[in-house]
Design a protein around this nucleic acid. Structure first.
Length: 885
DNA sequence: TGCATCACGTA
DNA sequence: CGTACGTGATGCAG
C-alpha cells in the first residue's frame, strides 16, 4: 500500500453487492408490515455503514448498472446471458437502496451503455491519480484487474459482512498471477457468470503457467503454435473465443464521468432523511448505525456529551441561585410508586450540578422546593410530566416548564416510536447513554453517584434542546410547541394526579355478572359442539372447530388462516346458522367486558380513584393517548357499557361530573379546510347535519330524508375523512359497489369542495413531504411517493386524515388550556379530569357547576376561529354515563 | 420472558 | 380495500 495520506476513496458496485446482500439474508425475515421486501436494502446499508465506519473514506461513490444493454452486449448478445432472471423480491429494492444512499448523501453514479465495473475502474484511476487510497467493493471477479499498490479490492466471501481484502500480493497468492494479468487468465479459463466459455481443458493452473512462461496473453497468442500438449491444441482451436473474452473483460478506465471526483467528497448524512427512510422501511437498529454519519451528530456529540463536570458540593445553593433558563433532569419515577431521588441542573454546556434529594437539610429542602415551584425560573426537561409526578411524590411542585425535549423530538417527527431520553440522545446526538452509564457507574463506581448521573443527564437534555429547538423552529412549530404542548404538560399532570373517582362496588358486581354470562355462554358453546372444551379465546382453535370440524364456509383470509372476528362470525351465522356461533359471540362479548372491568378494578388506587397516564408523544396526528388504564376506550354503545360508565362517579367533596363534547368536530374541520359552501351552510344553519346533507344528496326535502338515507350519508361523511373507498362504503352499508359509487358521486356533485380539498391535500402533501394542521402541526409522509401501490394508498389516506384528526386534536388541546386558565383566574376549585379526543370531563366543586359549564362552552367554542361554529354539548350528572347525555 | 398476532373497545 | 390509539389472550420463540 502506498504512503498517500490525502484520503480514501470508497467505490462500491451497487447491484453486485445488493445481490450478495439479497442472497445472504432470508427475504422472509426482512419485510415491512405491508410486505415490501427489504433484505437487500438492509444488508447493503449495513455493509456500507460498516465500511464507512471502518475506513472513514473521504470520498464515496456507489456505481449502478442501468437496465438495457451495454457496449458488451452489443458486441456479444449472449454476454452474461446465463444469469437467472432476478427474483421479483429483488427488483423493487433497488430504488429503495438509492433512496437510502440519498439519505446518507452518498453519490450514486451510473452511465448508459456501460457497466458499473467500468465506472469503478475509471474512478479508481482518477482517485489513484489524485493521490487517494482506493477501496473497491465488488462481487464481480473482473474487478480483480483494478488491484494495485493504491487500489484494494474488497470481495465478498460469504454474504456481505465477510469481505476478503485483495492486494497485489494476495491476488498473486490465490491465483498465481498479478492483478493486471488476471483478465488474461480469465480469458483463457472463461467466466461462467458472464457466459464466456474458456478454452476446454485449460484451468487456472495451466493458464497461470502459460502466463508465467509467455509473459501474458499477447505472448501466449503470438506463440500459440508452440504451446505444447493437448491443452495447446485446444488453445489453437479457440483463439477467437479467447480474444473476445479478453476484449470483453477489460474494464474501461477512461469513461467520461458526469460526476467529477471532487464531488464524491463525503460531507455527512441527512439525519431527517435517514429517519424518513428507516421509518418507511421499518428499520430499527439500522437507524442508530446510520445516524452517526449525519453531520450535526458527528459535530455535536463529543464536545457536548463527554466533557461535563458534575459538582455536588454546594449544589443546592448554586441551583437555587439560578434564574433560568436551565436544563433539569429528575432521577425518579412516575406512577403508583412515584418518587424522586436525584436532581440534576445545568445552565452551562460543560458543567452541571447534582443533588441527592434523599439527603437534604430542611433548609435546603425548602429552598429547592421554592426554586422548583418558581414559574419565573424557566426549566427544560425530557419528559417533564414524569418529573412533575416524581417531584410531587416528595411534596414539591414543578413550575416554569418552558421546554420538553421529548415533545420537541416528537413534533420534529411524530411517526417515530420511542421517545425515551436514551433513544432521543442516540437519535439526535448520536450518543449512547447505556454504554456510558454502564461504563461510568457500574465499573468500580468511577463515574460517581446516581446524583452525578442526573447532572450528566441534565447536560444531555441541554444539548438536546440546543439541537431540537431550531428544528422545531425551522418546521414552523415554535408556537405550537411553546404555547400549546408545553403548557399542556402541567394541565395533563394535574389531570392525571386528580384521576377519576370510581364506585368499586358497582364495578365489582358488574365484573361478577359479566364473568357469569361468559361462563354460561362458554358452556353453551361447548355443548353445541359435543362437549369439547376448546379454548374459545384461541383463534387458532376456533378455526379448527369452525372450518375443519363444522365445515363452515371460509371467511376472509388473515395471516394465520381465516378470520374468526365478530363480523365474520355474523356472516357465518347467516350463511350457516349454528348454536356454536351464537354462543361464541355471546362469550366474546362477555369476556371482553369482564376483562375491561377487571382491568379497571385493578387500576383503582388507594385513594379510590383511577389515574390514567396521558401521552403527548404517541399519536402521530397529535391526539393524546391514554394508558394504564386506557380511559379513552371505555365502552359506551351497549347497555353494559353504560353501566361501566356509571361506575365512574363524582368524588368526595365534589358536586358533579360535567362533560362537554364537540359536535361533529371532524366534519366541521373538513368544512373549514375545504371551504365547501354547502357544508359550511349546513353548519351555520345549525340544522341536523346528516339530514341536511341527505336532503342535498338525495334531492328531497329535509323532512323527507328517511333514517336509512340519513345513516348512509352519515357513514359516508365520516368515511371521507378517513379516505374511504366506494368498495369500503359498499361493504359497510351492505350495498353493491356500483350503488355505493353512485352515492359518492351524488355526494360529491353537491359537495364538490370536499372532493377538491381531499385531492388537493394529498397533492400538496406529496409535494411538500408533509401534511399540516390548522395550527401548523406537521406530519411527514414519505410513502406518498412510494413505488409500492399499497403503501402509497395507505399514505394517501393518512395524508387526508392527518390534517383533520390533527386539527381536532389541536383544538381540544387549546380548549383545555383555556379551561385551565379560566378555572384558575376565576378562583374555582373544579378540575379537569379526563379528555377523550372530542370530550372533556370536569369534576366540579360544590356550587361551581354553572360557572364551569359556561367556561367549558366558551373555551371550547373559542378554541379556534373557523368558518363554521364550534358547537359544544354539555351534560352533567353524578356519574360519567349520566353526564354524557 | 419477549414478541407477534388476533380481536375489540373508543374517537 | 377507512384514520388514530391501548389492552388482553394466545402461541411461538428464546
Amino acid at each position: 500500500m502506498s504512503e498517500s495520506t490525502k484520503g480514501t476513496l470508497l467505490l462500491v458496485d451497487g447491484l453486485s453487492m445488493a445481490f450478495r446482500a439479497f442472497f445472504g439474508l432470508p427475504v422472509e425475515n426482512f419485510a415491512t408490515a405491508t410486505g415490501v421486501p427489504t433484505n437487500a436494502v438492509y444488508g447493503f446499508s449495513t455493509m456500507l455503514a460498516t465500511l464507512m465506519k471502518d475506513h472513514q473514506p473521504t470520498h464515496v461513490a456507489v456505481a449502478f448498472d442501468l437496465p438495457g444493454g451495454t457496449f458488451r452486449t452489443e458486441r456479444l448478445p449472449s454476454y452474461k446471458g446465463t444469469r437467472d432472471a432476478t427474483p421479483p423480491e429483488f427488483e423493487p429494492q433497488v430504488p429503495l437502496i438509492r433512496e437510502m444512499l440519498g439519505a446518507l448523501r452518498v453519490t450514486a453514479v451510473d452511465k448508459e451503455r456501460y457497466e458499473a465495473d467500468d465506472l469503478l475502474a475509471t474512478y479508481a484511476r482518477l482517485g489513484r491519480e489524485a493521490g487517494l487510497r482506493v477501496l473497491v467493493v465488488s462481487g464481480d471477479r473482473d474487478t480483480i484487474q483494478l488491484v494495485n499498490d493504491d487500489v484494494t479490492l474488497l470481495y465478498p466471501r460469504k454474504g456481505v459482512s465477510d469481505l476478503v481484502h485483495f492486494t497485489p500480493t494476495s491476488v498473486e497468492e490465490k491465483y498465481g498471477v498479478r492483478p493486471d494479468q488476471y483478465p488474461d487468465m480469465a480469458a483463457l479459463v472463461g467466466e461462467t457468470s458472464d457466459n464466456l466459455p474458456g478454452v476446454p481443458g485449460v484451468g487456472p493452473k495451466t493458464a497461470a503457467k502459460w502466463i508465467g512462461v509467455y509473459g501474458g496473453l499477447p505472448g501466449i497468442l503470438e506463440s500459440a503454435d508452440d504451446v505444447p500438449g493437448k491443452a495447446g491444441q485446444s488453445l489453437r482451436d479457440h483463439l477467437d473465443q479467447v480474444r473476445l473474452n479478453r476484449e470483453l473483460n477489460h474494464l474501461l478506465t477512461d469513461l467520461e464521468v458526469a460526476v467529477p471526483l471532487a464531488d464524491l467528497e463525503y460531507a455527512g448524512a441527512d439525519a431527517a432523511a435517514i429517519h424518513q427512510v428507516c421509518d418507511a422501511l421499518e428499520f430499527r437498529t439500522l437507524r442508530d448505525r446510520l445516524l452517526p454519519f449525519a453531520d450535526d451528530a458527528a459535530a455535536e456529540q463529543p464536545a457536548e456529551a463527554t466533557a461535563v463536570v458534575v459538582r455536588t458540593e454546594g449544589a443546592v445553593e448554586a441551583i437555587t441561585a439560578m434564574a433560568g433558563p436551565v436544563a433539569v433532569h429528575v432521577d425518579g419515577r412516575a406512577g403508583v410508586d412515584a418518587d424522586a431521588w436525584a436532581l440534576g441542573v445545568t445552565d452551562a454546556a460543560d458543567a452541571a450540578w447534582a443533588v441527592d434529594l434523599t439527603a437534604l437539610s430542611p433548609d435546603q429542602e425548602k429552598a429547592l422546593a421554592a426554586w422548583l415551584a418558581d414559574p419565573e425560573v424557566g426549566k427544560v426537561l425530557h419528559g417533564a410530566k414524569d418529573a412533575w409526578h416524581a417531584l410531587q411524590a416528595r411534596g414539591w411542585d414543578l413550575s416554569g416548564i418552558v421546554g420538553d425535549t421529548q415533545i420537541a423530538a416528537f413534533l420534529v417527527n411524530p411517526d417515530q416510536r420511542g421517545f425515551e431520553l436514551d433513544q432521543i440522545l442516540q437519535r439526535h446526538l448520536g450518543l449512547s447513554l447505556d454504554a456510558g452509564a454502564a461504563a461510568g457507574e457500574l465499573d468500580l463506581g468511577l463515574g460517581g453517584s446516581p446524583a452525578e448521573s442526573a447532572g450528566e443527564r441534565a447536560a444531555h437534555v441541554r444539548a438536546l434542546a440546543a439541537v431540537l429547538d431550531p428544528m422545531v423552529d425551522e418546521r414552523g412549530m415554535a408556537s405550537l410547541y411553546a404555547e400549546l404542548e408545553i403548557p399542556l404538560v402541567s394541565v395533563l399532570a394535574r389531570m392525571e394526579h386528580a384521576g377519576m373517582a370510581v364506585d368499586t362496588a358497582q364495578l365489582g358486581s358488574l365484573a361478577d355478572e359479566a364473568r357469569g354470562r361468559a361462563e354460561r355462554a362458554a358452556e353453551e358453546a361447548y355443548s353445541s359442539i359435543g362437549g369439547d372444551r376448546v379454548n374459545l379465546g384461541s383463534p387458532k382453535q376456533l378455526q379448527e372447530v369452525l372450518f375443519d370440524r363444522l365445515g363452515m364456509p371460509k371467511t376472509k383470509k388473515i395471516k394465520t388462516g381465516y378470520s374468526t372476528d365478530a363480523s365474520s362470525l355474523h356472516d357465518l351465522s347467516e350463511k350457516s346458522p349454528h348454536p356454536f356461533l351464537t354462543a361464541l359471540l355471546a362469550h366474546r362479548d362477555a369476556t371482553k367486558l369482564s376483562q375491561i372491568i377487571e382491568t379497571l378494578a385493578q387500576s383503582v388506587q388507594p385513594d379510590g380513584r383511577i389515574h390514567t397516564t396521558f401521552s403527548q408523544v404517541v399519536a402521530a396526528t397529535g391526539r393524546l393517548s391514554s394508558k394504564d388504564p386506557n380511559l379513552q376506550n371505555i365502552p359506551i354503545r351497549t347497555p353494559e357499557g353504560h353501566r361501566i360508565r356509571e361506575a365512574f362517579v363524582v368524588g368526595d367533596g365534589y358536586e358533579t361530573l360535567l362533560t362537554a363534547d364537540y359536535s361533529q368536530i371532524e366534519m366541521r374541520i373538513m368544512a373549514h379546510l375545504s371551504g365547501d359552501a354547502g357544508l359550511i351552510e349546513a353548519f351555520q344553519r345549525g340544522e341536523d347535519l346528516h339530514r341536511f346533507v341527505g336532503s342535498r344528496v338525495f334531492g328531497v326535502a329535509p323532512e323527507d330524508v328517511t333514517s336509512e338515507m340519513r345513516s348512509q350519508v352519515k357513514a359516508m361523511s365520516y368515511g371521507l375523512a378517513y379516505g374511504l373507498s366506494s368498495f369500503g362504503l359498499a361493504r359497510q352499508l351492505g350495498l353493491p359497489v356500483g350503488a355505493a359509487q353512485a352515492l359518492m358521486d351524488d355526494y360529491f356533485s353537491r359537495f364538490g369542495g370536499v372532493r377538491d380539498y381531499l385531492r388537493e391535500v394529498v397533492d400538496k402533501a406529496r409535494g411538500d413531504g408533509y401534511t399540516e394542521t390548522i395550527f401548523g402541526r406537521r406530519r411527514y409522509i414519505p410513502d406518498l411517493t412510494s413505488s409500492n401501490r399499497q403503501r402509497r394508498d395507505i399514505a394517501e389516506r393518512v395524508a387526508l386524515n392527518a390534517p383533520i384528526q390533527g386539527s381536532a386534536a389541536d383544538l381540544i388541546k387549546r380548549a383545555m388550556l383555556g379551561v385551565e386558565r379560566r378555572l384558575k383566574d376565576e378562583g374555582l376549585a373544579s378540575r379537569q379530569v379526563l379528555q377523550v379526543h372530542d370530550e372533556l370531563v370536569v369534576e366540579t366543586a360544590p356550587g361551581e357547576s354553572a360557572a364551569v359549564e359556561t367556561i367549558l362552552r366558551e373555551e371550547m367554542h373559542a378554541a379556534g376561529d373557523l368558518s363554521v361554529p364550534l358547537d359544544v354539548n354539555v351534560g352533567k350528572g353524578g356519574d360519567w354515563r349520566t353526564a354524557g347525555h
